[in-house]
């Protein structure tokens, strides 16, 4: 279901793929992870708006999480390797900013996986500058919402640091962007 939804939501140039190819390629992409958060796939992260065909090439469109994310090159290489491994020789990754990635693109399954990794999932992304909204994070260890935002910058560009006042542990949150 998700595959069809992703495929129809965003349109790109090029021919559409046969149904069987589509399923194979999306399954291959679902094995590619962010090296800094290895539990969640790039599909669950919402980083792949569409896959299409351009002549002989299979084109994976990738919308980056943060423009300065140092993992992008590795992810791009891993996409090519995974799709080649599924039997598609000529693979290209197009980095696109349309649609712009926001944390709202992370799927529900992806959010559960972030939490299991110890990262509080992001709340709804807000366009405005609102510290209160960003401060809302449930502790991934004890589910308490009695938490305090410690730092809007963390060990990677996509993480903020919070403190749980109930279980008295620091934890990281995937930032709403």
């Amino acid at each position: 279901m998700r595959l069809a939804e992703f495929h129809s939501r965003d349109h790109g140039p090029g021919d559409s793929l046969a149904q069987s190819d589509t399923a194979m390629i999306w399954a291959a992409l679902d094995t590619v992870t962010d090296p800094e958060i290895p539990v969640i796939s790039i599909v669950e992260m919402g980083m792949v708006p569409s896959v299409l065909v351009d002549g002989d090439a299979t084109v994976v469109r990738m919308t980056p999480t943060f423009a300065g994310c140092p993992a992008l090159d590795v992810i791009r290489q891993n996409i090519v390797a995974a799709v080649k491994n599924a039997g598609y020789e000529n693979v290209r990754v197009d980095v696109v900013f349309d649609p712009p990635w926001t944390s709202d693109r992370i799927t529900d399954v992806g959010r559960e996986k972030l939490k299991s990794f110890g990262l509080a999932p992001p709340g709804a992304a807000c366009g405005s500058i609102n510290e209160l909204r960003i401060a809302e994070a449930a502790c991934p260890l004890c589910d308490s919402t009695n938490t305090t935002l410690e730092s809007i910058f963390g060990p990677t560009l996509c993480r903020a640091i919070h403190y749980c006042n109930d279980c008295q542990q620091s934890f990281e949150q995937f930032k709403p962007v």
Partner: peptide
């Protein structure tokens, strides 16, 4: 325009930092 829509979301953290 596409790039600006993307970067705008990241910049709100820079602004929050300065204002704080």
């Amino acid at each position: 325009a596409q790039l600006a829509r993307k970067l705008h979301g990241e910049l709100k953290y820079h602004v929050m930092h300065g204002r704080m």
